[in-house]
């Protein structure tokens, strides 16, 4: 008989209609701005620049090597290298980005910039509430808006950030050991030199 299936289907929708008032489990919708799903660790939105504590200008890991700018497929990164050098978080003199802009209306979240960065300075953010009433300026992130602390990085991607921190700490220790060894070698050489100094005039003397 025609209409049998229709009646069955209408019973089903009626069950859904009344069921949604009775059992809250049926309503799977998350009321977004107020309620949020827990963040997935592997999520990524747009890049940000990691800073090692303290003043963000001083502590930025970026040394303006411009590799990310060159690798960026949609060319959304714009970097202007500084003329002078400033000490970085380790106290070493480095170039720094005078201008660092990312146009996130162009960015395609491919993560290539984060992968090519030799200094672990650019990483992927998870912030996605980026809507703005200014479609150009509001989506062009400057250096200040891009700079975020290493603690923030640890909070959004704990596993990845821990690995990065361990690697950086290892490198720093190695460098320190190397520097120490170099210093020791230097001081030893100096000591040797100092020991050898009295002989020196003899060398300089004509035979």
């Amino acid at each position: 008989m025609i209409g049998e299936g229709i009646l069955k289907g209408m019973a089903e929708t009626a069950r859904n209609f009344f069921g949604s008032y009775v059992s809250k489990d049926r309503l799977v919708t998350l009321q977004y701005p107020e309620q949020r799903d827990p963040q997935i660790e592997a999520a990524r939105s747009f890049p940000f620049l990691v800073c090692d504590g303290g003043d963000w200008q001083q502590a930025m890991r970026c040394v303006a090597c411009q590799i990310c700018e060159k690798e960026c497929p949609p060319k959304c990164i714009f970097i202007e290298k500084s003329k002078d050098k400033k000490p970085d978080a380790n106290g070493k003199l480095q170039f720094y980005p005078a201008v660092f802009n990312i146009d996130i209306s162009v960015c395609m979240s491919c993560q290539i910039c984060a992968e090519v960065c030799p200094f672990d300075a650019i990483k992927m953010d998870v912030d996605h509430d980026l809507s703005s009433d200014d479609r150009f300026g509001g989506l062009l992130l400057n250096k200040q808006r891009l700079a975020k602390s290493n603690e923030y990085y640890n909070s959004i991607h704990p596993t990845e950030a821990a690995a990065v921190d361990a690697r950086l700490a290892g490198e720093r220790a190695r460098q320190e050991a190397k520097a120490k060894a170099a210093a020791e070698a230097k001081s030893a050489a100096e000591a040797k030199l100092a020991a050898a100094t009295p002989v020196q005039p003899a060398i300089g003397e004509p035979r």
Binding site: F17, L27, V28
Partner: peptide, 10 residues
């Protein structure tokens, strides 16, 4: 509202 409830939405 009605369509939403039939599809288990608000």
């Amino acid at each position: 509202k009605g369509l939403g409830r039939m599809q288990n939405r608000y």
